[in-house]
Design a binder for these strands. Structure first.
Length: 940
RNA sequence: GCUCGAGUGGUGGAAUUGGUAGACACGCAAGACUUAAAAUCUUGUGUCCAUUAGGACGUAUGGGUUCAAGUCCCAUCUCGAGUACCA
């Protein structure tokens, strides 16, 4: 074998190892804290370090942000590009429950590598990430489960606890200012976000005991303890937030969820509803994510109207978005849980109503959802009084009205609302028509383009005007007021689990107090990670002296914080990860500001992305940070799906049947490990050795002896044996190939199945690039002047690649680099000037090979901070243009003409051309369109 | 049901403002080198008709605007995501 030839081959394994070592030792990617350079903050959503490790889908977004970060370094930016771990979470705790191993231990193994309790090798996230050549500044790593991190999560909680929301200044303020006002004038003049509606005076406040005052303050604090209807998941032993439930079951594990009244910590995120909605306009996110958040916040405008109940003191308050239809009301419906129901129900209806209430309460959230079509309800026997007409309106209950939205009661306008129409139709209730010339005999008329009629002072008005006038009259007469309603609920902030942040809270009796210490409250050791016998959370197992802090009260808080606590502010900690005195130093956050480019999955639309916006606004209000939105620009990478391999087994004989012979047998299919495949061909020996039951497997192969598997697109998961790890590919093709290939696969945002077939093409491109710098025996570049063609090739690439990266079109960059290398190969170009530019162009995508070639070109320093090549248009300017000549819009042939020609001259040249005459075949053109530098179109 | 997004060769995809549809790559076919294989290189490759020259069709479907439509407008279908009695 030719030794020289081997030396000059592209040895990616050696090259990549060397440069990864170099970068780590020289701290090449360290971000500078005190820099005169402009800053750029490129951030990935940090991962939960699971024991399964990385598959090829995980690094997709990381590769994109890394490319952008490296690109920005070339452009002279001081780049902050950190990585860390969202390391509190359920899987580590579930594993702890099963094995008794402390979740901190498994978490550390999952990050740093090792073996689990069963002896399985865990590669470790860090090791896997390192092999891909990311330019992370690892000195800034954070782990949310480390006390030096969650110390500050607790600190932020304390700030939120010690704040209230002033609707007048429209921002959060310190609770002290509220206490001062209570002392001086009670709560009557205070406009705060609260569910507490009664008033008290200064003397009331001052006469209350400390405990009573604290209880009152909980109605105002932004983090507060209250009895709340929560989503209780007994299988997981904890409550879940609305965004943790998908299709009525828990997102994790798919367990049933029921409604339960529990004393829980909550965050008053509703105070920020309007700002969370409005500021969406200021961020560069996809419309889809913005829409999801808008829907989730669910703003609707209308009026709240009060109806008296005939013969009772109680009144029914409803929220409606259509106050213009108030004269169309023919009945009212209350939620079965509405507090008034028991009071107003007549004796005759009592049994029926109670039976209905009972049935409704037994229905789970899921049943209620799957049962939307069924119309049910019950008449209370009571009547409300229409505020304007004085008519008596029957009051019903029905479970299509939700207790948790608005006031839990609706005024039903069957002619304008389909649900009301259905209800009225089903129970034979009157359906008065208040829309001029609209037919409501078959369905409600919900469009807002009607003219109102049969409606007293609203007659002959269009919807918009009628709405305005109705609200005006309602307010004038004191029947209610204009109101804005949000779907967004306050966020439940406690979980009955072990592996999360402990609260810096203790109790005296039932009253919570913040611990006075600045020390972190560490997770105490417990004997088991399970709830106690009487259903208390695992932390109740810790004795008072098991905690690292002194508990001055009766007991510590036993709940822990939810998963979103640590992730709501982690992007701030990267700026100052080791600060022991502050969560982040003012000068650092002033310099780094918010995240310029954030890449991660769209599945966090209503969770993490909403909560971190909330906390950011809160910290802004208290003047800790100088910006209102955490993430300026966001890209949501698509999911990479698995490409499962199926083998077919003949049901009668148990023999395995190749795909091509499948139709001759009655088969069932099962998943085979994709690692046994070469293309679609199964390595039958490896398959036989996979499991004992397959040791004696027999195969019915194709005629050529190959065994072909079927393929199927699934989610990439261990259970489908379709997981492709990056490690295997890095070993086989190198990290640079993997990086380029993952980008080459298609647009970043798109979901796509993983298919390894095309990777050879990308690998070939890097080999081809390598060969530009080498002859058969050695590295060789020429110092000769480049030709016009060579300059044109490289500048075309500079223009395309730069433009494509800037508009985040990561996939087309690879194509353009390929075209560049193909053309330079065709030119046999090894000119130093050209290849130097090429190396820098390639470096964000294929940093290892770029560094290697860069050093071979004679450079001593890393090319990380090498200026990006400048596009010079003069190399692309042509004197001629190849005009496509079209006839009636169909292109027939090309004609090269000088660019200096005028429209008229072009037309003359084209019309004089032989081919033109041929295509016209004697016809006289009606019209000739000439677009200089573009096209000629002959009509006729 | 509502909201949003997407439908382009055998496959992944390209076409930034309406201006040569299918760049780039995979796969496939033929050839070169080789005892052979791998690697590498060359050529071809949207569909249909035609020996060639060439012609017709073609970006989910149907219509429209325009000299010109994958791109703009209207309607329909399919797929994906979100949401689900939100008054």
């Amino acid at each position: 074998m030719d030794l020289k030839n081997i030396v000059m081959q592209y040895q990616f394994n050696t090259i990549e190892k060397n440069w990864q070592k170099y970068w780590a030792e020289k701290k090449t990617f360290a971000a500078e804290d005190n820099s005169v350079k402009p800053k750029f903050y490129a951030l990935d959503m940090f991962p939960y370090p699971s024991g399964a490790g990385l598959h090829v889908g995980h690094p997709l977004g990381y590769i994109a942000s890394d490319i952008y970060a490296r690109f920005k370094r070339h452009q002279g930016f001081n780049v902050l590009h950190p990585m860390g771990y969202d390391s509190f979470g359920l899987p580590a705790e579930q594993y702890a429950i099963q094995t008794g191993q402390h979740p901190a231990v498994t978490t550390k193994t999952n990050i740093e590598g090792g073996t689990d309790k069963d002896g399985n090798v865990i590669p470790g996230y860090r090791n896997q990430l390192d092999k891909i050549g990311f330019s992370f500044d690892w000195d800034r790593e954070v782990r949310t489960s480390e006390p030096n991190y969650y110390k500050w999560t607790q600190w932020i909680f304390k700030q939120i606890f010690n704040s209230w929301y002033n609707n007048e200044s429209d921002k959060a303020e310190k609770i002290d200012s509220l206490i001062e006002k209570f002392k001086a004038e009670g709560n009557s003049n205070i406009k705060a976000t609260t569910d507490f509606e009664e008033t008290f005076s200064a003397s009331d406040w001052n006469s209350w005991s400390e405990e009573e005052q604290q209880k009152m303050l909980l109605n105002y604090r932004l983090a507060y303890l209250s009895d709340t209807w929560v989503n209780w998941c007994s299988a997981l032993g904890t409550v879940l937030a609305n965004d943790e439930i998908k299709n009525g079951v828990s997102e994790r594990g798919g367990h049933p969820v029921e409604q339960k009244l529990m004393r829980q910590w909550s965050m008053r995120i509703t105070a920020y509803a309007e700002r969370l909605l409005k500021d969406l306009d200021t961020v560069d996110w996809t419309d889809s994510i913005k829409d999801i958040q808008r829907n989730w916040i669910g703003k609707s405008q209308g009026a709240s109207v009060i109806f008296d109940v005939d013969g009772h003191d109680g009144e029914i308050e409803v929220f409606t978005t259509r106050p213009d239809t108030i004269f169309g009301v023919s009945f009212m419906v209350l939620a079965p849980e509405h507090e008034l129901v028991a009071k107003i129900t007549t004796a005759e209806q009592k049994d029926k109503i109670e039976a209905y209430q009972k049935a409704a309460s037994l229905k789970s959230e899921r049943d209620r959802m799957s049962d939307v079509k069924t119309i049910s309800g019950e008449f209370t026997g009571a009547y409300a009084i229409h505020p304007f007409s004085g008519d008596k309106i029957p009051v019903w209950i029905g479970d299509y009205v939700l207790a948790s939205y608005g006031t839990g009661a609706v005024m039903s306008v069957p002619c304008g609302d389909q649900r009301d129409w259905d209800f009225a139709n089903h129970f034979n209730i009157d359906i008065p028509n208040i829309f001029k010339d609209k037919d409501i005999s078959e369905a409600a008329y919900a469009e807002k383009d009607a003219v109102i009629t049969n409606s007293d002072f609203l007659n002959d008005l269009p919807v918009k005007k009628a709405t305005k006038l109705a609200i005006y009259e309602i307010e004038q007469k004191g029947f209610g007021k204009g109101k804005t309603q949000y779907k967004l609920r306050n966020a439940v902030f406690s979980r009955q689990r072990y592996w999360g942040e402990p609260f810096p809270v203790y109790y005296n009796g039932e009253t919570p107090y913040l611990l006075d210490t600045n020390d972190v409250v560490e997770l105490p050791e417990v004997d088991k990670y399970l709830p106690t016998a009487d259903g208390e959370p695992p932390l109740a197992r810790a004795k008072k002296d098991a905690w690292n802090v002194d508990c001055p009260g009766d007991r510590m808080e036993h709940n822990t914080m939810p998963g979103w606590a640590g992730s709501s502010w982690y992007f701030l900690r990267y700026m100052d990860p080791t600060n022991e005195n502050e969560f982040v130093a003012k000068d650092k956050v002033d310099y780094w500001q918010n995240v310029d480019l954030y890449i991660g999955g769209a599945e966090h639309a209503t969770g993490h992305l909403l909560y971190s916006r909330f906390w950011t606004k809160f910290l802004y209000d208290l003047d800790y940070i100088p910006f209102k939105e955490p993430f300026k620009k966001m890209i949501n990478q698509g999911m990479i799906q698995g490409n499962s391999a199926l083998v077919y087994r003949d049901i009668d004989s148990g023999k395995f049947v190749s795909k091509g012979k499948k139709k001759d047998y009655k088969t069932s299919s099962l998943h085979a490990d994709i690692n046994f495949l070469d293309g679609d061909i199964l390595d039958t020996e490896r398959f036989k050795n996979w499991r004992a039951e397959y040791n004696n497997a027999e195969f019915i192969t194709e005629d050529n002896g190959e065994f072909i598997c079927g393929r199927e697109i699934d989610k990439m998961s261990k259970s489908k044996y379709n997981v492709q790890t990056p490690d295997v590919l890095v070993q086989k093709y190198g990290a640079d190939t993997l990086r380029c290939y993952e980008m080459f696969l298609g647009p970043l945002e798109q979901h796509k199945p993983w298919d390894v077939q095309g990777i050879t093409g990308v690998h070939g491109f890097l080999k081809k690039a390598w060969r530009l710098f080498h002859n058969d025996e050695a590295f060789e570049v020429s110092d000769a002047e480049p030709t016009k063609e060579e300059l044109k090739t490289i500048h075309k690439a500079i223009q395309k690649v730069t433009g494509d990266i800037e508009r985040y079109s990561f996939n087309t960059v690879v194509s353009n680099l390929m075209i560049c290398v193909n053309e330079l190969t065709a030119h046999k170009c090894n000119k130093r000037i050209i290849l130097t530019d090429l190396v820098v162009l390639m470096s964000p995508y294929a940093p290892h090979i770029a560094e290697e070639l860069w050093s071979k070109l004679g450079n001593k320093e890393s090319l990380t901070y090498q200026p990006y090549p400048k596009f010079d248009e003069s190399h692309l300017i042509e004197s001629n243009h190849k005009y496509p000549i079209s006839f009636n819009g169909k292109m027939k042939f090309l004609m090269e003409l000088p660019l200096t020609l005028s429209k008229e001259e072009i037309e003359k040249e084209v019309m004089a051309n032989e081919q033109t005459k041929k295509y016209l075949a004697g016809r006289e053109p009606k019209k000739v369109i000439v677009v200089p530098k573009k096209i000629v179109n002959i009509v006729g």
